[in-house]
Design a protein around this nucleic acid. Structure first.
Length: 434
RNA sequence: CGGGGCGUAGCUCAGCCUGGUAGAGCACAGCGUUUGGGACGCUGGGGCCGGAGGUUCGAAUCCUCUCGCCCCGACCA
């Protein structure tokens, strides 16, 4: 994309409403604009990041055998009456009436809806297990939205729902998701730690939160340094092997890890290499058995012909929250440092001297080759402005084309994460980035 | 939902206490000089001072109500 033709409104100064780094940088880098408290418009650069995160989440869900679908944002109140949650959920749920005065709501989650869909079509134990997910906007009317997209009212979430014949099957589904989550977060450039968690209003009795470490995290966390060695994406574990899943689960849940609410000072004393810090919750998985299938009348024919009530679990990832979380974990004073996997563009191309024949020729050439993967800063601005904006926006690579090097076909390649700069030929620059 | 604070130009903010024709810096447009880390000069455009009532000859400024937003706490992907 050409920056001169793009809506990427970077700000030199920090808007007054932003307190924490990620919120500040998301506004300054032109990723989002707030439209109401806790509700954001995603501008082109931010939307690209959001889609990149969603893509990785999707790939790992698919790899774990989950099926993607899409459920609506607006749901009928009736469904929630069947589970008993319509009254239980409280003012956090945005309730709406349509023109016929029917009670509707903007979904904060989809257990009821998926259970309803599932019970309409699935009749036999032969069709289980299944895991269905979607990536959809949710709304929770938080009393106090804050921290930008990290605690918004409207947010994009991946939520998956598993259906199994019994507890043993549900545990396997649960472990698959745990592995998929670890791989997902690793691909996003994050170190995530599964911690024993409260189940909250979703309910159930087996639950882990996925916490990433960041100094500005919302909760105090305690964990064994052993987690720093775990590499879930090594390929060591297969989704198809129950033995692998069991080993993976054990490795991920044996060392001590807990948030403030679940912290056990006595057990903590016995941890060999203790670490404390702040954490951001980016995912949450639950097993809740028949909490929804039972009251909502989901029953299928079992092998003996008798009705069988499936055991369920649900698995959430805060996709929009992750944008903020990644920035919290990866930035410096100058701006964002995007991991390659989620960056809005692979690289920025800085033409330091618009109108210089050599600079223009090199830039045109590079732009023709990389096109949409590249943000071409072709603005009529001074070099300093372009450097500052490129650092702020956090592109993984900066290709700097100035009159000094351009004369003999050289460009400067800068790695944003490390600050390392090298002077290379155009061909070498393209090869490094590819 | 309790406590605190703020709404003045696209952004950061001054002016309000003590009422008298709306300000600065940045950004934007034009011209000139600059040109490898957020340049300089000149000129120019841009505001129903969040909204509604009230007090007053006169309100950004004082009073009442209201809406919005932010922060701390209690609660959550």
């Amino acid at each position: 994309m050409r920056l001169s033709r793009s809506l990427v409104p970077t700000l030199k100064e920090t808007p007054a409403e932003a307190q924490i780094a990620s919120h500040r940088l998301m506004l300054r880098a032109g990723l989002v604009r707030q439209t109401s408290a806790g509700i954001y418009a995603w501008l082109p650069a931010g939307w690209r990041v959001l889609q990149n995160i969603a893509r990785i989440v999707r790939e790992e869900q698919d790899a774990a055998g989950a099926q993607e679908m899409l459920m609506p944002t607006i749901q009928p109140a009736d469904l929630w009456r069947q589970s008993g949650r319509y009254d239980a959920y409280g003012p956090e749920m945005l309730r709406i009436r349509d023109r016929h005065d029917r009670e509707m709501l903007y979904g904060p989650t989809n257990e009821e809806m998926i259970t309803d869909i599932f019970r309409q079509s699935v009749k036999s134990y032969r069709e289980l297990p299944q895991n269905l997910y979607h990536i959809q906007w949710k709304f929770r009317d938080e009393v106090r939205p804050r921290f930008g997209v990290m605690r918004g009212r409207e947010f994009l979430m991946k939520d998956a729902y598993s259906f199994d014949l019994d507890y043993e099957g549900a545990v396997i589904s649960y472990r698959k998701m745990m592995l998929a989550y670890m791989r997902t977060f690793q691909r996003l450039g994050l170190k995530a730690i599964p911690m024993v968690a409260d189940t909250g209003p979703i309910g159930g009795n087996l639950s882990h939160e996925f916490i990433i470490l960041a100094p500005t995290g919302e909760s105090q966390v305690y964990y064994d340094a052993a987690f720093e060695q775990i590499d879930p994406a090594s390929g060591e574990f297969s989704f198809d092997s129950n033995a692998d899943l069991a080993r993976c689960y054990e490795r991920l849940t044996t060392p001590y890890a807990a948030t403030d609410e679940k912290h056990d000072p006595v057990a903590w004393e016995g941890v060999p290499d203790r670490r404390e810090g702040r954490g951001i919750e980016v995912g949450h998985i639950f097993y809740f058995g028949t909490k929804y299938s039972e009251p909502m009348g989901l029953a299928i024919a079992g092998p003996d012909g008798k009705p069988l009530v499936p055991h369920m679990g649900s698995y959430g990832i805060g996709v929009s929250r992750l944008v903020g979380a990644i920035i919290e974990a990866s930035h410096d004073d100058a701006g964002i440092k995007w991991p390659d996997s989620v960056a809005p563009w692979k690289a920025a191309l800085l033409n330091l001297k618009q109108g210089d024949a050599a600079c223009d020729a090199i830039c045109t050439d590079i732009y023709r080759r990389l096109g949409n993967d590249l943000l071409y800063d072709d603005r009529e601005d001074r070099a300093g402005v372009k450097f500052a904006d490129a650092d702020l926006m956090g592109h993984p690579w900066h290709i700097v084309v100035g009159p000094r090097g351009a004369a003999n076909g050289k460009v400067e390649l800068k790695r944003r994460a490390t600050g390392e700069r090298t002077e290379v030929s155009v061909a070498d620059a393209l090869a490094r980035i590819a």
